[in-house]
Simulated assay, not measured.
Amino acid sequence: MSENNVLKVENVTMQFGGVIAVDNMNIEVNKGEIVSLIGPNGAGKTTAFNVITGVYAPTNGAVYFQGEKIIENHPQGKMKKLYQGENNGKYTHSIVPTPDKITKLGIARTFQNIRLFKSQTVFENILIAKHLRRTSNLFTATFHLNGKEEAKMRKEAEELLRIVGLEDLRDEMATSLPYGKQRRLEIARALATEPKLLLLDEPAAGMNPQETDDLTAFIAKIRDEFGLTIFMIEHHMDLVMEISDRIYVLDFGKPIAEGVPEEIQNNQRVIDAYLGGAADE
């Protein structure tokens, strides 16, 4: 494993009953890269994200973050008989952290369908996320001994809003924002958890061309400004081809290609499975 490797997905299979949603997937994302995961609807892209972020325990395989194994599982119970994937018997331990523990390790994500705190303001959405890193406890909070930490978090939340261009909307209800700014707020909320790796699940979904152009520039900006590594699912091919350092392609849960944008655009298997169909729509 390379010293620059931030994320490694190793032989991951996710099987639901008799259906294999992700089939022996191997992916690597290196420090500072923007890597995209593309493929037809139902190809298993969001399932892969759910495995990486602890929403699902994989049926088989392992996930490494910054060189450390953070997830591992193998077929158990009824799945011992039902399992249809590869590498059965290779993995023998179960390491299945919950999503909050994954986030604390330094992996944050957004969702295909925006999931803001609807009854909270723009500022409060950011501040709530900042609390992931708080060191105070029930005792210090009860006796108001955490004032300095709370003030620090509020200051950092204000600065983050300035960086992402939402400071003038700090007191607006999150769901009152235009769609594109809601997307930006969701990304900003993920940034508030201080990630090293940011997973974006279809960030341009539902955006018009101008909003998509703005988002493309925004993703590049936060990668550089926050020193991030970004792993992204996206159907908007102009965005993917413009911003990605490398691209993986999934089809029926299985990676069928990996390469730089030009290689993917000219890969006949990818054209037949995905790009050709997308171009016809």
Rank of each mutant, 00 (worst) to 15 (best):
T135Q: 11
L177F: 01
G180S: 04
T212V: 10
K148C: 13
A192V: 07
F111Y: 09
A205K: 02
R115I: 03
R184D: 02
L169T: 09
E225Y: 02
N146Y: 11
L185G: 00
Q182C: 00
A141F: 15
T110S: 08
N208D: 03
A141Q: 15
F143T: 06
P195M: 13
F139I: 15
H144Q: 05
I126R: 09
S136Q: 11
F143P: 07
I128T: 13
L199I: 11
L215E: 08
I126G: 08
D213M: 15
F111G: 05
E172A: 10
F111M: 05
L199V: 00
T193R: 01
N125Q: 15
R154I: 15
E186H: 02
G180C: 02
D224R: 06
G180Q: 02
A192H: 01
A129K: 09
N146L: 15
F117H: 13
S136M: 14
E156D: 03
N137F: 10
A108P: 14
L177C: 02
E202F: 02
G165C: 05
L197R: 11
E150H: 14
M153P: 04
V122I: 12
Q182M: 00
I219K: 04
L161I: 05
R134K: 15
P203K: 07
K130G: 11
H144C: 06
A192W: 02
I219N: 01
E159S: 14
E211D: 06
E234V: 01
K155P: 04
L215I: 03
E159I: 11
E202M: 05
V122A: 07
L166Y: 07
I163R: 07
S176V: 14
N208K: 05
L138D: 09
R133L: 13
R133G: 13
A129F: 12
Y179P: 04
T140M: 08
D171L: 10
K152G: 11
G147S: 09
R109H: 05
V164C: 02
T175I: 10
V164R: 02
E225Q: 06
I233D: 04
A220V: 11
H131R: 13
E211Y: 01
Q210A: 13
R223I: 05
V164F: 03
Q120S: 15
K152W: 04
I222K: 07
R154F: 14
A141K: 12
K181Y: 00
E186N: 03
A192I: 08
D171G: 12
F218D: 02
R133I: 14
D168V: 14
D168P: 14
E150N: 14
F143H: 01
A205H: 10
Q182N: 01
V164K: 01
F231M: 10
L198G: 06
D168W: 07
F139A: 13
Y179K: 03
N146S: 10
I222H: 05
L228K: 01
L177P: 01
A190W: 07
G227V: 08
T140P: 09
F218R: 09
K118R: 15
E211F: 01
I233A: 01
L161W: 04
A108S: 15
L191Q: 03
L160Q: 03
T193L: 03
A188G: 13
M153L: 15
T229W: 09
A157K: 10
R184C: 00
R134G: 14
N208C: 08
I114C: 01
N113I: 15
